[in-house]
Amino acid sequence: MVHVARGGDGPLLVLLHGLGATGSVWRGAAETWPGAWLAVDLPGHGRSAPAARYSFGSLAASVAAAVGSGPVAVLGHSLGGVVALTLASGWFGVDVRAVGGLGVKLRWTPEELARAAALAAKPARVFPTREEASAWASKLAGVPVADGVTETGGGWRAALDPAAFGVGEPDVAGLLAVAKAPVVLAAGETDPMCPPEHLLAARADGLVLPGVGHNAHVERPASVKPVLDRLHGALVS
């Protein structure tokens, strides 16, 4: 089971965070959605249990079990964006009517993949205080995550399961090809993980969000409104 937070009423938006973060990073953006929303803590993150194995399919299956039936729009950031696209394939039984990926890393080097694999093999760091663990968790996520820590026998650690770093390289082009719903890809104007040139090479209709970086939904929640508008239009049409 994964932890979810819910709010609002009306057309449902499912929100998926990036690696190391939790569903709470969507709080500001969720408030601008004209309907109901559901924010998930992915397996191995926040208040959700770790997974036996991390793959985009296993993460999507966990989210699908929490979402249930009924038409939805899905918006994911970074890792969550790949999971959102995986759900839009139709392979997991979720009735996805619109899907969005924000800041999805589209190009990987062998060195980047090797670094991720090395991080996945390391044990979690344990700190004597919650504050120190929270600072480390926020560094891993790239955004403040006050709810991203857990207590252990010897102190506190980031709730992120390090093994999640080993999820591997996504086949974004393949997922775009099989998506059974309208797709919106977006990235911040200064996003180093998904520069505008990478975004627009993958999708000519990609949305470049001015004045924000990789974590646009946290840096300035209102900046993702064009993404939400497109998703809402597709969901209710």
Rank of each mutant, 00 (worst) to 15 (best):
residue 42 L to F: 04
residue 170 P to L: 00
residue 92 F to R: 08
residue 53 R to S: 03
residue 147 D to P: 01
residue 211 G to Y: 08
residue 30 A to G: 03
residue 8 G to F: 07
residue 83 V to E: 08
residue 74 V to N: 13
residue 128 P to K: 04
residue 61 A to T: 05
residue 1 M to S: 15
residue 134 S to I: 05
residue 235 L to P: 12
residue 208 V to P: 14
residue 178 V to I: 02
residue 175 L to P: 02
residue 166 G to W: 13
residue 203 R to I: 03
residue 99 V to T: 09
residue 20 G to M: 10
residue 204 A to Q: 14
residue 162 P to F: 11
residue 116 A to E: 10
residue 155 G to F: 05
residue 57 G to Y: 00
residue 162 P to C: 15
residue 179 A to C: 01
residue 36 A to D: 08
residue 77 H to M: 12
residue 159 A to L: 09
residue 70 G to F: 12
residue 107 R to D: 10
residue 42 L to V: 07
residue 92 F to K: 09
residue 47 R to F: 01
residue 47 R to N: 04
residue 62 S to M: 02
residue 71 P to E: 08
residue 166 G to C: 07
residue 235 L to Q: 13
residue 187 A to R: 15
residue 156 W to D: 07
residue 90 G to A: 00
residue 121 A to Q: 06
residue 136 W to D: 11
residue 56 F to L: 05
residue 231 L to K: 07
residue 59 L to D: 08
residue 37 W to N: 08
residue 13 L to D: 13
residue 205 D to Q: 12
residue 76 G to N: 14
residue 27 R to T: 06
residue 223 S to V: 03
residue 88 A to Y: 10
residue 223 S to E: 01
residue 80 G to F: 07
residue 83 V to S: 13
residue 111 E to M: 02
residue 217 H to S: 09
residue 43 P to C: 06
residue 26 W to F: 03
residue 235 L to F: 15
residue 131 E to K: 07
residue 74 V to S: 12
residue 204 A to E: 15
residue 210 P to R: 06
residue 136 W to P: 00
residue 30 A to V: 02
residue 188 G to S: 11
residue 8 G to V: 05
residue 2 V to W: 07
residue 151 E to Y: 05
residue 209 L to I: 06
residue 125 R to Y: 01
residue 63 V to K: 11
